[in-house]
Design a protein around this nucleic acid. Sequence first.
DNA 1: CGGCGCCTTGAACCAAGTCAAGCTCTGTGG
DNA 2: CCACAGAGCTTGACTTGGTTCAAGGCGCCG
Lengths: 229, 229
Amino acid sequence: MRPSMQLQNFASKQTPGRDGGNAVPAHTHTLSGSLELMGAPMSFAKGVEIYGESEPADYLYKVLSGTVRTYRVLSDGRRQIGAFHFPGDIFGLETGGVHLFSAEGTTNVNVIVVRRSSVIAAVARDNELASELWSFTAKELNRSRDHIMLLIKNAQERVAAFLLEMAERVTGNAVELPMSRQDIADYLGLTIETVSRTLTQLEDAATIELPSSRRIVLRNRRALVEMNA
Amino acid sequence: MRPSMQLQNFASKQTPGRDGGNAVPAHTHTLSGSLELMGAPMSFAKGVEIYGESEPADYLYKVLSGTVRTYRVLSDGRRQIGAFHFPGDIFGLETGGVHLFSAEGTTNVNVIVVRRSSVIAAVARDNELASELWSFTAKELNRSRDHIMLLIKNAQERVAAFLLEMAERVTGNAVELPMSRQDIADYLGLTIETVSRTLTQLEDAATIELPSSRRIVLRNRRALVEMNA
DNA sequence: CGGCGCCTTGAACCAAGTCAAGCTCTGTGG
DNA sequence: CCACAGAGCTTGACTTGGTTCAAGGCGCCG
């Protein structure tokens, strides 16, 4: 069991303080934008569960700040992180009424919490939104399938893919990682030792620089891309 | 490169012979049922490509008979099978206009071919269908995520999970596998040798019987379930 | 009944995991 | 301001599960 830490001034797990209700604006016509208006803001401390596997999926979430990990734990304790969610990302949406993953911040996080029923209602009224909802789920599916391709690769290829994925979200070559080595390992299906060693190797090969453990500078992107089988 | 075989009396890859058009019945109200009526039947020989990765996704498919594998190949030749599709299953549906996987029969297959545009049109007219389409994609997403959990397990756990998955589709304990060891290996992210050895181990442990290589009898389901971490 | 895929088995090897220190950064209290 | 404690990260030595390479068996179809 890994310890989970909790900070002052951040909520522990609870239901949203105020209810966003069904007050959907007539035609926002973007899923992400509509959610913002339908939901209530909420904060969670790093490592505090936002929702748990097999809990009713009455709410979905949009990240305002911070980073969220969604994950599953096998009976013997192995943890697999399904995805990291960054500001702007939506997570926690399920068709069935139940969450199949758990979610927590890898940092302190601010989210918008939206009632699932509000979204369902909005979508029933608005074809455009319905289509967006479908696209969103399909994109998640594609991401998940990419993740599968990741998991059949070797350690170096996985780490390279991870670095490129993280680098996609920033301009420039410096990446500030908002998660621990353990999180990276559990995302890539490796151990922290292997992740650490692989990063060191990449540094030795002058492919990356590691000014600090959470900060990585891509020196040779092409080399990383070429590792992606 | 693995050889692909082609039989007489079965089509090689081509576009559908006749077009199902837009003749959607007023309110069939089941996605799968509607597709049947919208589409044209077609046959493909074992190992013949039904569609290829990065081709335009103008059609989607429903399996009538036989088994289909959808897969991706990495540049170095490693193949990952994303899913097997059995009679009744829909495959080839994409939100973007492009297939991200290839598809072929692991046996000779009969499918219904449906224009993507027809489905999109039907869904725009019918909220119920739209919702079903979303649920379908979400189910695929859940399957994909389960597949990820598979890939972090050890060989025995993967094979056990595979056997249980195959057994789900039949009544009784005898399973006739419609795919080769190579297909199983590429689905589980293992080698054929490891799959073969693991099956032998399970037979030695009296968990299964192997009357022939394609026929497997589950002798001790509980043992298989317990392997599923 | 002969040949060719497909499958199984064996032996050697290797990439990643495990176990065990030790290091580094960060925050805390003296 | 510095000493200390603890968490997180790195590194080293060793082990191991699964792959690789190689050979042989089985069964199906012509």
